[in-house]
């Protein structure tokens, strides 16, 4: 069996989603850097988290440089602000040439525009909404 590749992941935003993914990736042996403007958010990282923490604004080019974004296999832009995420994701993709970039966008309309631009966006409301609609659909058509 081939050993899984060790990834280098940069995660912008260490809120609920960011810290969850950071802990998970770190537990699987990947190297992870988390960036957040508020250092208290790093408390959400587990004691086993072995990655780096950078306190700073990921929309600042220098902060992304400090995180060695040019070496990253994966960047996740998951702060609670859509515009921060969209900017960070585009800088990662177009300037640092990160091969895999994922962005959380809360506003479905904004998501559509950037999705059309070829950016991998995730809209939590749409994901949750579709799941709920599927459950509702299953209730309405129990035979299926």
């Amino acid at each position: 069996m081939v050993a899984p590749k060790q990834l280098y992941a940069v995660i912008a935003g260490c809120g609920r989603l960011g810290s969850y993914v950071a802990n998970k990736l770190s537990a699987r042996g990947h190297s992870v850097v988390v960036i957040d403007v508020d250092e208290t958010t790093f408390d959400a990282l587990s004691s086993e988290f072995s990655g780096y923490r950078i306190e700073g604004d990921a929309t600042e080019f220098r902060i992304l440089q400090e995180a060695k974004t040019d070496k990253a296999d994966l960047l996740l832009a998951v702060t609670h602000e859509d515009n921060v995420n969209l900017m960070v994701a585009q800088v990662a993709k177009k300037v640092f040439k990160v091969p895999n970039v994922m962005v959380r966008v809360n506003d479905p309309m904004r998501e559509q525009v950037y999705h059309d631009m070829g950016i991998d966006t995730i809209c939590p409301s749409i994901v949750a909404g579709d799941a709920i609609a599927a459950i509702a659909g299953a209730l309405a058509f129990p035979a299926e």
């Binding site: 600042e60 602000e81 859509d82 515009n83 969209l86 900017m87 585009q90 904004r110 525009v113 631009m117």
Partner: peptide
């Protein structure tokens, strides 16, 4: 700056505004 970027990109891609100018702070 991140707000300005998104404003400009939406203006350009979604609304096709002919002239777009942005302030950058950093």
């Amino acid at each position: 700056d991140e707000d300005n970027l998104v404003i400009c990109q939406l203006a350009e891609m979604k609304f096709h505004v002919p002239r777009i100018i942005s302030l950058v702070n950093d």
